[in-house]
Design a protein around this nucleic acid. Sequence first.
DNA 1: CAAATGCATCGACAAACGTCAATGTATCCA
DNA 2: TGGATACATTGACGTTTGTCGATGCATTTG
Lengths: 121, 121
Amino acid sequence: MATATLERPETRTGAPCCAPSAASATVTEPEAEEYAAWFKALADPTRIRILNLLARSEEPLCVCDIVDRFPLGQPAISHHLKILRDVRFVHSERRGTFMYYRVNRACLGEFPEAARRLLNA
Amino acid sequence: MATATLERPETRTGAPCCAPSAASATVTEPEAEEYAAWFKALADPTRIRILNLLARSEEPLCVCDIVDRFPLGQPAISHHLKILRDVRFVHSERRGTFMYYRVNRACLGEFPEAARRLLNA
DNA sequence: CAAATGCATCGACAAACGTCAATGTATCCA
DNA sequence: TGGATACATTGACGTTTGTCGATGCATTTG
């Protein structure tokens, strides 16, 4: 899957986050693909746990911190982190040779509200 | 995937819906699989649009009504409806030879809140 | 009962996903 | 400059997913 598929105009123009300002109206096919991409990023137990781990951590965590907590190899963890980064659920920041990850609170905060508008119309 | 995987004790004992009463604590691996199953059910554009269609409809819709709105065959639509039923996002009811589907408001209402507790800890 | 209708299920197939081992890249340090 | 460290990327593999055509089942109607 191409990364560009998950990058929306709003994000490229500097909008803080994810919500496509969905009114409680009909969801078009492009919008549906966008929503599905967000849900797909959460459709794996490991990513759920990584995200919860980052959400509950005061400090950003480096990749090796995360690898230590899972029975998976480092490439698998990096793969999941990339998926979470592509949909803007997490941010990453270099510190020397370390990459520190933290949740994108603006994005995760808007996500449940977007889900509500979508499903609870 | 077996249907039984998506049936949690609460649903079997008559609880209204989905939320596993997740405090804002560490998500265990079984809990993560449960959450992932819900998100997985929403990780497809067609299911997003089916769910939005049902959510915006006052009246329940039969399968042929839904089939008419998508460029997919009837087996594909039935397949997606089964996935949405397995996670309790929709209900189905027979009327003669027709199967009428409607959203499970209790479930879809709790889902965003569960997502918030999970991600916005 | 028999035919017709609406939907579910099955079998098959291509595409996507998750994982690992191996390798590449960037940064720090001696 | 060269080695070591932390992470990303690649290629391969088995599993899962989404779709279709064909078929089966339940219900209504003649």
